[in-house]
Amino acid sequence: MNSTAYLIPEHPVIFEEEIKKSVFITQIAHTPSIELAKAFVDQVKKQHSSARHNCWGFVAGRPENSMMWGFSDDGEPSGTAGKPILAQLSGSGIGELTAVVTRYSGGVKLGTGGLVKAYGGGVQQALKLIQTIEKKITTQLRLELDYAFVSIAQAELSRFEAVEVESHYTDKVILIVELEVNHVDALTQSIINKSGAKAMVSPVENN
C-alpha cells in the first residue's frame, strides 16, 4: 500500500470557450472510484444530451495508478479527444478526478490538430481553476491495554492525531483507532515503550 498523501480536487470546476463557432464546456469533478467517474460522465451526458459530443477522461485513484484511468472520444475522430483529456489529467499530479468536455458544434471543421488542441486545452484551463486538498492515507490499529495505561495511551493517540473509532471496556481496554499510515510505526513503538511492553498493538484486518 502506498502511504504517501496525494492531491484531490476540493470543488467541481467549469471552463467554457468558443473555438471556430464550436462551444467547448469542460467540467471536472472529484470522483474517488471508477463507478463514480462513470456516474459523473452519465450525469454530464444527461445535462448536455443535445450536444453532439461529450468526450471524457478520468484518473479515479492515485495520480500515477494507470489501472484507474479511462477515456472516450465519444464519436470524435480516434485520438483527438479522450487521449488529450487524459494526458492533461494524468500530467496534473492530481488524483480522483474526471473531466467531461461537451462540444456544441458550430459547423466549422477544426481538423484533428484543432480538436486535440481544443479538448486538451479546455482541460488545461479548467485544471488551473481547481483548488486541491491533500488526501491522507489512513489505516486502523487495535490496542489492548490495562486500565492504568489508558490516559497515557490517549495522550499518545492525540500526539499522533489518531482517532478513536471503537472502544471496549472489559477486563482490559481495547481501542480501535484510525491514523495516517506513515505514523503507525512511531505510535506503535511509543505505546509499547511507555507501557513497558504490556500494551498489545496490532493492525486491524480489513475484510
Rank of each mutant, 00 (worst) to 15 (best):
E76G: 14
P77K: 13
S78D: 04
G79I: 04
G79F: 06
T80C: 11
A81W: 01
A81C: 03
K83G: 04
P84N: 12
I85V: 07
L86E: 00
L89P: 00
G91F: 07
G91W: 05
S92M: 04
G93S: 12
I94S: 03
I94M: 02
I94Q: 00
G95H: 07
L97H: 04
L97E: 01
T98M: 01
T98R: 00
V100P: 10
V101S: 04
V101Q: 03
T102R: 08
R103G: 13
R103C: 13
S105F: 15
G106V: 10
G107K: 04
G107C: 09
V108R: 05
V108K: 07
K109D: 03
G111E: 03
G111F: 11
T112S: 07
T112C: 05
G113V: 06
G114Y: 14
L115K: 01
L115C: 03
L115V: 02
L115N: 02
V116R: 05
V116D: 02
V116P: 03
K117S: 14
K117W: 13
A118V: 07
A118R: 08
Y119I: 01
G120V: 02
G120Q: 03
G122E: 09
G122L: 07
G122M: 09
V123K: 03
V123Y: 01
L127V: 01
K128H: 10
I130K: 04
I130E: 00
T132K: 06
I133L: 15
I133T: 15
E134F: 12
K135I: 07
K136G: 10
K136I: 11
I137F: 08
T138P: 13
T139L: 10
Q140N: 11
L141Y: 02
E144N: 08
E144I: 09
L145Y: 07
L145C: 08
D146Q: 11
Y147V: 12
Y147I: 12
Y147W: 12
A148N: 15
A148V: 15
A148C: 14
A148S: 15
F149R: 14
F149L: 13
F149S: 14
V150C: 04
V150I: 09
V150M: 08
S151M: 08
S151H: 14
I152Y: 08
I152R: 13
I152W: 07
Q154E: 13
A155D: 10
A155P: 00
E156K: 11
E156I: 01
S158D: 06
R159F: 05
R159H: 11
F160G: 01
F160P: 04
E161G: 01
E161W: 00
V163I: 08
V163W: 01
V163M: 02
E164P: 01
E164R: 06
V165S: 01
E166F: 14
E166W: 10
Y169E: 11
Y169C: 14
Y169W: 14
T170D: 13
T170R: 12
D171K: 12
D171N: 12
D171E: 12
